[in-house]
């Protein structure tokens, strides 16, 4: 069981506000890791620091290290474009581009230089299948993606991310805008994808974390309170705060 991502003393602040403080943890390869905690605890900021999307916000300051396969992604020589190819992200609100389903999935490969129709066709089909969406859209690849339901759009975003062949998939509360049926489908995907990729999921739904993940990290007010296997965390939390959160004393 190797470490895919290791954070060392990772801290992020926006202007005067410190969002996360000194988080050190090891995310294992080919497993699903959940990040839970009450609103405002910094889960989103944490996950966005794993693919440097925090840098898109003004005034963001990041200190500490994030090592992907041993290399610090915040190092001077690390190319951010390569990083984001390796570490993909699914957003809270599905954000398909107003293009066709086909063009959405083909966007990444095209941007990375693949233009041959046969190659793109194959990539589109393969990844829509991996995202459990192929059966529903195989006959409507060319109409706009905006016509899909919320759950379908989110699976499209997953297919789109898979098409650039990432190694890590970050998911920032991917089901919070979806109905229970769509949520169940995506939770199923989280499990199947974690065998091939390293999946990190931020969720405010504890039960989802328990269902889906192998490891869980509990964040509170920007700090890492406890981290361990999901079984251990949920059945035997070592920290009082963790226990309080899990039994619902605060949300």
């Amino acid at each position: 069981m190797s470490t895919k991502i290791e954070t060392r003393d990772l801290s992020v602040s926006f202007g005067d506000v410190q969002a996360i403080k000194s988080i050190s943890m090891k995310i294992l390869a080919n497993r699903a890791t959940a990040v839970i905690g009450p609103s405002g605890c910094g889960k989103s900021t944490f996950i966005k620091s794993l693919n440097r999307m925090n840098e898109l916000t003004l005034n963001s300051q990041t200190t500490g290290e994030v090592l992907l396969d041993g290399e610090n992604i915040y190092g001077n020589n690390y190319d951010v474009v390569t990083l984001r190819k390796k570490v993909g992200m699914i957003f809270q609100k599905p954000n398909p581009f107003p293009k066709s389903v086909y063009d959405n999935v083909a966007y990444g490969p095209r941007v990375h230089g693949i233009h041959k129709k046969e190659a793109l066709d194959r990539i589109v089909q393969e990844n829509l299948k991996k995202a459990a969406l192929w059966d529903e859209v195989s006959d409507r690849l060319h109409p706009s993606a905006m016509g899909l339901s919320g759950g379908q759009q989110q699976r499209l975003c997953i297919a789109r991310t898979l098409a650039v062949e990432p190694e890590v998939i970050l998911m920032d509360e991917p089901c919070s805008a979806l109905d229970p049926i769509a949520t169940a489908k995506i939770e199923g995907l989280m499990r199947t994808l974690s065998t091939e990729y390293s999946v990190v999921v931020v969720t405010h739904n504890m039960q989802q974390a328990a269902r889906v993940s192998d490891y869980t990290a509990f964040l509170y007010l920007g700090e890492l309170i406890e981290y361990g296997s999901t079984k251990d965390i949920f059945e035997n939390p070592k920290n009082e705060l963790t226990e309080k959160y899990l039994i619902g004393k605060f949300g």
Partner: peptide
């Protein structure tokens, strides 16, 4: 749109 594209490594 920009975020989604950047997240794909563009």
């Amino acid at each position: 749109f920009r975020e989604g594209s950047l997240a794909l490594g563009a």
